[in-house]
Simulated assay, not measured.
Amino acid sequence: MATEAHGAEEGSSLVFHPMDQFIVKPLFGGTEVHWYTITNVTLWMALTIVAVLALMVLGTSGKKQVPSRGQSMAEMAYGFVYKMVEDVSGKDGLRYFPYIFTLFMFIVFANVLGLLPMSFTTTSHFAVTVVLALAVFLGVTILGFVLHGTHFLGLFWVSSAPGPLRPVLAVIEIISYFVRPVSHSIRLAGNVMAGHAVIKVFAGFAAIAAVSPVSILAIVGMYGLEVLVAFIQAYVFTILTCVYLKDALHPAH
C-alpha cells in the first residue's frame, strides 16, 4: 500500500494543466465573473495601456537630439508602422494611421507583458481578439460604403474574369470577406495560446530530474521563440488591417 501511495504521489507530480493559465479569475475573491467584475484580464489590459502610454508619452516628453533609449524605441515603432500604412494602404491610408498605430502598440505590449512570470496574456483570449478584429472589419466596411456607396460592392465583382465565372467568384469573394474577422482573430489568439501552452508543458516536465535539463533548454528556446512571435503576430494583425483598409479605399478589382 505504501508503494502504491508513493507511486500515486510521484504520478501526481506529472499532472499539470497547461490551459489553466488562460482562466479568467476575479481579482478580489469569488468565482463568478460578471460584466462589471474586475479580473486578471482587466488588470493586464490596464497595464498594457499604461505601458504604451509610458513609452509614447514619457519616453518622448523630453526630446533630445541624441535620443534616449525610450525615445528611440518610440520613434522606431512610429516610423515602422507609418511606413507600413503608407506602403500597403497608400497615402490615403495615412489619415487612419493613429488607430492602426494604437492597435499595433496594444497588441505588441499585450503579447510581451504576457511573457512575464505570473502574468496573463490578454491576446490569448478570443473575447479580446474578436473585438479587435470586428472593430477593424466593421470600420473598413462602413468606411468603404461611406466613401464609395454601392460602388464598394465592386470589391466582390471580378470584372477581369470571364463572364460566366463572375457570379461564382462573387460568391467566393463575399464568403472570404465575411471570414476575415474570424481568421484575423483566430490567428492572433491561436498562435499566442499555443506557444504559452507548450512552455507550460515543458515547465511541467522540468520537475522530473531525468528530463529536467532538456526541459529547461526547451523552455529557453520556446521563450525566445515566443518573444519573436509576440512581434510577428502584432505585425501580421496590423498589416492585414492595412490590406483591408486598402480594399475600403480602393475597392475596384
Rank of each mutant, 00 (worst) to 15 (best):
G163K: 09
G163S: 07
P164V: 02
P164M: 00
P164E: 06
P164T: 05
P164L: 02
L165Q: 02
L165D: 01
L165W: 02
L165P: 00
R166I: 06
R166G: 07
P167E: 13
V168F: 13
V168P: 00
L169I: 14
A170E: 04
A170C: 11
A170L: 10
A170D: 05
V171S: 06
V171P: 02
V171G: 02
V171L: 09
V171W: 03
I172N: 09
I172H: 11
I172M: 12
I172A: 13
I172Y: 12
E173A: 15
E173S: 14
I174C: 12
I174S: 06
I175V: 15
I175G: 08
I175A: 14
I175P: 01
S176F: 13
S176R: 14
S176K: 15
S176Y: 15
S176L: 15
S176I: 13
Y177P: 06
Y177G: 07
Y177W: 15
F178N: 05
V179N: 13
V179L: 15
V179D: 14
V179H: 12
R180M: 09
R180P: 01
R180S: 09
R180F: 10
P181G: 01
V182M: 09
V182H: 05
V182R: 01
V182L: 12
V182E: 01
V182I: 13
S183I: 10
S183H: 08
S183Q: 08
S183L: 09
S183T: 13
H184T: 00
S185L: 03
S185D: 06
S185M: 05
S185Q: 06
S185C: 09
S185I: 00
S185A: 15
S185H: 06
S185W: 02
S185Y: 04
I186N: 11
I186S: 13
I186L: 15
I186M: 13
I186F: 15
R187M: 12
R187T: 10
R187L: 10
L188R: 03
L188G: 00
L188D: 04
L188K: 01
L188V: 12
L188H: 04
L188C: 02
A189H: 10
A189P: 07
A189T: 12
A189C: 14
G190F: 12
G190D: 10
N191F: 07
V192S: 00
V192A: 05
V192W: 05
M193C: 02
M193F: 09
A194D: 00
A194C: 03
A194P: 00
G195M: 00
G195I: 01
H196Q: 14
H196G: 09
A197Q: 07
A197M: 13
A197D: 03
V198A: 11
V198T: 12
V198I: 14
V198P: 02
I199G: 00
I199E: 02
I199T: 02
I199W: 01
K200R: 15
V201I: 15
V201M: 12
V201L: 12
F202K: 00
F202V: 02
F202T: 00
F202M: 04
F202S: 03
A203W: 11
A203Q: 14
A203D: 15
A203K: 12
A203F: 10
A203E: 14
G204A: 06
G204C: 07
G204R: 03
G204V: 05
G204T: 05
G204S: 05
